[in-house]
């Protein structure tokens, strides 16, 4: 089996979650989702990717509000949210907890409603991130009946595991553990309750073909917008 970086495993997993989407938007500071999109494009998938923070050739000509207007119109299939805290109802907190201040809610309070699917992504898998109840709701995972909502959570991906969101049960189900992690460790490191799939699957590792693309055209593409990330994962790469 090929050696791979954890970031490469996560990017391949995100790429599978994106699936058959037509239009994916990637927001601030999201190098792994951006890598997943670049991988799908390198595989020849007919996907439109709008990178909010693309430094050159940015897709928006109406300023930074255009992304939100696109989402409001129903033109964004998949969006990504990270958070300082995520709870078992898929609420996200990007504002504050326990005396600590985080950057802020960004577009979460709108995009979580307006995008057709949202993939929650946070590498740190710990009881301080995955909490029973968030200290501040930047954006709710579930809305009351009668409140307009086009989409919501699809899955929660961490550095340790993949959880699927079950809309009908409004709970997560642990779908797979990344290689090197097991059910007991995930339970101990997760602050909220969730359902189990038995037996627990192992998250598929990147194929040789995926790794070749990641380390070639994808690395060069990502280096342009996320130079620090590209250097950390792939070493020195010349951006396209």
């Amino acid at each position: 089996m090929a050696e791979y970086a954890r970031e490469e495993l996560l990017a391949c997993t995100v790429a599978r979650l994106i699936g058959e989407a037509a239009h994916v938007a990637v927001g601030a500071a999201s190098p792994i989702p951006a890598t997943a999109c670049a991988l799908l494009l390198a595989q020849g998938r007919p996907l439109r990717v709008s990178l909010l923070h693309k430094r050159a050739g940015n897709p928006f000509t109406e300023g930074s509000r255009e992304l939100f207007d696109l989402a409001g119109q129903g033109r964004i299939d998949v969006f990504f949210l990270g958070a300082a805290q995520i709870d078992g109802r898929a609420n996200v907190n990007l504002v504050r907890a326990g005396g600590r201040r985080f950057p802020g809610s960004f577009g979460s309070a709108f995009m979580y409603f307006a995008a057709r699917r949202t993939i929650l992504f946070r590498e740190e898998h710990s009881p301080r991130v995955l909490v029973p109840k968030v200290d501040f709701v930047s954006a709710p995972g579930v809305s009351a009946a009668g409140v307009w909502r086009r989409g919501g959570p699809q899955a929660l991906l961490t550095g340790m595991a993949l959880f699927r969101w079950q809309a009908e049960r409004t709970r997560f189900r642990l779908e797979s553990a990344h290689p090197g992690h097991d059910s007991a460790e995930i339970r101990a490191r997760t602050g909220f309750d969730y359902d189990l799939a038995e037996p627990l699957a192992s998250t598929p590792t990147p194929s040789a073909g995926e790794l070749a693309l990641l380390r070639g055209p994808v690395a060069r593409e990502i280096a342009g917008n996320y130079p620090e990330f590209a250097r950390r994962v792939w070493g020195r790469v010349a951006p396209v």
Partner: peptide, 30 residues
């Protein structure tokens, strides 16, 4: 604290000279 499209929407209201403008989503957020 705000959320990105609420900032844009509040400024767009001023662009048009109206006192407020609606936006979808956000309900249920603290």
């Amino acid at each position: 604290d705000s959320t990105c499209p609420m900032v844009h929407t509040g400024l767009q209201a001023t662009e048009k000279g109206v006192p407020f403008m609606p936006l979808r989503g956000v309900i249920g957020s603290d």
